[in-house]
């Protein structure tokens, strides 16, 4: 069941130069939200912005009826969202899309994020922890200036960082990190979200090592509920809507 609810913005925190984390509070109880699902937020009073903006769910706090959205300022719509003042009302269509599947018992997942794509991995890690699996994060950024506040991730499990210029953590891309170069990897399932080029490299690694890899896509979309067919991704079974059959796909299913 999906809903349209008005939320109140209770906090707007800057996590990086162009990334804000919005904390939204609902008056009523939240529906069950799975890791990997997203919302479609209506952007009001913004010239040139008509369609809702799809944003992945960064975190959920059921006891406070709060959800967090990590928003990167990449255009007029997200710029307006990043500038919202506490107290603003946001009309939210949610929870949308398919979730990250829970790993089988005994599996050791690695959660690989790039840039603002780290967003859904926090709630995924929290869900894993609630299921008795300690998450391990590998997060890639361009440089220290684009690094996102990772303290909340460290509270859940180990965090490894790469930056392209080496200003923080290991120098290089996520696939260059020593954990990905070991001949005996200490993980066996990958969950990833970030730039498509990074996810493709990660999927290739998973394929070479015979691991399952679940990738979360962020295709441009209009409706978010499988009606407009704008957000399709090519799969082994033809074009599939990212909004209802994704955003999370098994990488083996994708033809990208």
């Amino acid at each position: 069941m999906r809903f349209i609810h008005d939320f109140t913005l209770v906090n707007n925190a800057k996590y990086a130069a162009d990334v804000s984390v919005l904390t939204l509070q609902n008056d009523s109880d939240l529906p069950q939200i799975a890791a990997g699902q997203f919302v479609e937020v209506r952007v009001d009073n913004t010239p040139g912005v008509m369609l809702r903006r799809p944003i992945s769910i960064h975190d959920v706090n059921y006891s406070k009826n709060q959800i967090k959205l990590m928003v990167q300022n990449v255009g007029k719509g997200t710029d307006a969202l990043c500038r919202l003042a506490v107290g603003a009302t946001l009309n939210v269509l949610y929870p949308l899309g398919a979730e990250f599947p829970v790993p089988e018992q005994g599996k050791q997942p690695l959660l690989i994020g790039g840039g603002c794509g780290v967003a859904p991995l926090l709630y995924l890690g929290r869900c894993f922890l609630n299921n008795g699996i300690t998450p391990c994060f590998l997060l890639g950024f361009r440089s220290m200036s684009t690094l996102i506040e990772t303290k909340t991730y460290s509270e859940l499990g180990e965090v490894m960082i790469t930056t392209e210029d080496g200003s923080v953590g290991h120098k290089g891309y996520v696939v260059n990190h020593p954990v990905m170069c070991s001949e005996t990897p200490n993980f066996d399932t990958i969950y990833t979200c970030g730039p498509e080029i990074m996810m493709k490299a990660v999927a290739k690694y998973a394929e070479q090592h015979g691991m399952e890899c679940y990738a979360s896509l962020e295709n441009r979309m209009a409706c978010g509920i499988g009606a407009c067919l704008c957000c399709v991704a090519p799969t082994v079974e033809g074009n599939k809507c990212t909004c209802v059959e994704g955003p999370v796909f098994n990488s083996k299913y994708l033809q990208w």
């Binding site: 912005v49 369609l51 979309m221 209009a222 067919l229």
Partner: peptide, 17 residues
């Protein structure tokens, strides 16, 4: 199967599909 992605673009007060 329809056309390849991208299939949609927002434009002022409208959208292309």
């Amino acid at each position: 199967e329809g056309n390849p992605y991208p299939r949609m673009a927002e434009t002022p007060a409208g959208m292309l599909n």
